[in-house]
Design a protein around this nucleic acid. Structure first.
Length: 288
DNA sequence: GACCAGGAAACGA
DNA sequence: TCGTTTCATGGT
């Protein structure tokens, strides 16, 4: 299957710390699981090439996940026309936001707090291996891929079992989230129909979920284009670029990001995040 | 060994 | 409403 799309940097998007289940294979394609299907995707001229197993009847769910109908040009045009923002866009033209499954996204970001991206990937992989369902596509050379475990399955785990997946103090939070979702106490599918602040309040009832993680879920999975997660990298970027003199209070910084970046502030945030990390990687090259 | 990582919550001032 | 500390684990 070939999905035509312009302005799409697949590699940057899948490696950008918004989804943690993708693996880059030696031949340059990405393997993952979306909607119960094992997927292999690669960037090709003019679009994305995908294989799926089991073979799907239609591919709408894949276009939805990758948001290939979104016109990036129109989104970038809404960004503030200031130097810092334009520089961030120039740094990685084609970076995109995915539309993830809300439960997987919520669980992943509960596991993300004060963890590096590679470690989050490691924990998610371990969880999937132990509690997800195996999917064996015909192209798999090694073992099968695994779905991300559903809330009902994780709700049946003990805290000790979850801690064995290296998540440390985040285990109670994940368990709390899984139980709320499994019991129907929290309807993730409904969040997208609520006003932003109400949806955020719902998520923040979960232990270990504060504004940052809630905003990640609202932006990456629930379709709120102005949700603006502020993590250490984005805070660093915004301070350096927009408050070079004195450092603003947290409340001041919050007000700024909510008003300055326009109707697609969440997208702008992803560019700031990616660009600031790229600068850090350039200034501090990894030890051989 | 010190320091940090896509944070949140409990605490004291 | 501020800043500080603690939580668990692994990488640099």
């Amino acid at each position: 299957m070939r999905v035509p799309v312009e302005d799409y940097d697949l590699d940057a998007t899948l490696a950008s710390g918004q989804a943690f289940g993708w693996t880059l294979t030696p031949d340059g394609s990405w393997e993952g699981v979306v909607g119960g299907h094992a997927i292999r995707v690669r960037a090709v001229p003019g679009g994305i090439e995908a294989e799926a197993h089991p073979p799907p009847a239609d591919w709408g769910w894949l276009r939805h996940y990758f948001q290939t109908d979104v016109r990036l040009e129109e989104i970038l045009a809404t960004f503030p026309q200031d130097g810092p923002m334009q520089a961030s866009v120039q740094g990685c033209r084609g970076l995109r936001l995915l539309r993830q499954d809300p439960w997987q996204c919520l669980a992943s970001f509960i596991l993300s707090s004060t963890k590096q991206i590679v470690q989050i990937q490691q924990i998610c992989r371990l969880l999937s291996l132990r509690y997800g369902e195996p999917v064996r596509p015909p192209w798999a050379t090694q073992g099968p891929l695994h779905t991300f475990p559903c809330a009902e399955r994780l709700a049946r785990c003990t805290e000790r079992e979850l801690r064995e997946c290296k998540m440390g103090f985040r285990a109670p939070g994940l368990l709390d989230a899984a139980r709320r979702v499994a019991l129907g106490e929290l309807d993730l599918g409904r969040l997208g129909t609520l006003p932003l602040s109400e949806a955020r309040d719902e998520l923040c009832k979960i232990r270990g979920v504060g504004p940052k993680i809630a905003n990640c879920v609202l932006l990456f999975a629930c379709g709120f284009p102005t949700a603006f997660p502020v993590d250490v990298w984005v805070r660093r970027a915004v301070r350096e670029l927009y408050f070079p003199r004195r450092r603003p209070t947290e409340a001041r910084l919050q007000r700024f990001v909510e008003t300055h970046f326009g109707p697609h502030a969440g997208y702008a945030q992803q560019y700031l995040f990616h660009h600031r990390r790229a600068v850090a990687a350039r200034n501090l090259p990894p030890a051989s």
